[in-house]
């Protein structure tokens, strides 16, 4: 029983990070209908940038984090302005392929500057001491991260639901032309989407980096986020939140019960199996927007 609770708790912690990274993909998909395969790369480059500002440049921790944040915003802006803007009006597939290229490009840049596969460690900015609660042992760091991610996701739910910009973004996501006719600047919406997305990738990268250390394997976390995003329904923010937690928990539970039976690690495949099963029953994902068709 304690094992199960422990798995649930750890799953929630990891799942919240999946939700956060997945949210970045959802924001871009919602407003531009582009599936951003480079989210993992953005996450990795964010983690490296924060490390670079703190350790290589030698800034104090808070300043290093803020500088990293600012450069992440910059990167998002540049990607939209010089990568995606040129392709507006082209088939969506070409834009999706560009994000794949971006992923490869970022991989190369990171390897060029910071080398391959060396684990870099942040100066400690979150307390790692363990906390015991109901026979579960969790590090305080994980708990803080969980609440940070929940807070940020909550913030975005409110942003999209009630703010003027959020409404514009949802409107443009539905119909670019009609949005333009209403006087919404689609360029601003696209820039905003990419900036928000890189920002989320940066936060996710720093939080993950503070747990596992910074390395080039970080971008693989995004591979775990793809099933999360699809499970949540691609366009739904509450969907990606819940799907992230589900996948996180399932990974740990399968690790607990399936691994001894199979005799190998099942963590990586379980999310995809669940995804396939869910998509058979609900093709739009758990909370996806069902196409409204009136005949």
């Amino acid at each position: 029983m304690a094992e199960l609770l422990q798995a649930l708790a750890s799953g929630l912690m990891v799942g919240s990070l999946y939700s956060l990274v997945g949210l970045g993909i959802v924001v871009i998909y919602k407003s531009t209908h582009v599936f951003n395969f480079a989210q993992g790369g953005l996450l990795m480059v964010g983690a490296y940038l924060a490390w670079c500002f703190m350790e290589q440049v030698g800034l104090p921790i808070w300043l290093g984090l803020i500088s990293g944040l600012a450069s992440a915003v910059m990167i998002g802006f540049l990607i939209e302005r010089f990568g995606m803007r040129k392709l507006v009006g082209q088939p969506i597939l070409s834009l999706v392929i560009v994000t794949l290229a971006l992923q490869a490009f970022i991989d190369g840049i990171v390897t060029l500057f910071w080398g391959d596969n060396n684990y870099l460690v942040y100066p400690k900015f979150l307390p790692p001491n363990p906390v015991e609660f109901l026979n579960i042992i969790l590090s305080l760091q994980h708990i803080i991260i969980f609440f940070i991610t929940m807070f940020i996701i909550g913030l975005f739910i409110i942003f999209f639901k009630y703010s003027k910009w959020g409404l514009d973004m949802r409107a443009v996501a539905e119909d670019h032309q009609a949005g333009m006719c209403m006087g919404i600047s689609t360029k601003m919406v696209f820039i905003l989407a990419w900036v928000i997305s890189t920002l989320l990738a940066y936060i996710g990268g720093v939080l993950l980096g503070s747990i596992n250390g910074v390395s080039t394997t970080l971008h693989q976390i995004a591979a775990n986020c793809f099933p999360v995003v699809l499970l949540g329904g691609l366009e739904s923010i509450p969907g990606v939140l819940i799907a992230g937690l589900i996948v996180g928990i399932l990974e740990y539970i399968s690790g607990l019960y399936l691994d001894p039976i199979v005799g190998a690690s099942t963590r990586e495949i379980v999310p995809y199996i669940i995804l396939v099963l869910v998509l058979i029953i609900k093709p739009y994902g758990l909370f996806g927007l069902v196409r409204i068709e009136r005949i």
Binding site: L167, R170, A171, E174, D175, Q177, A178, G179, C181, L289, I292
Partner: peptide
């Protein structure tokens, strides 16, 4: 312009 075919933001 009020576009042809209404063009509402269907999910809003």
């Amino acid at each position: 312009q009020v576009m042809e075919g209404r063009r509402l933001f269907a999910h809003l």
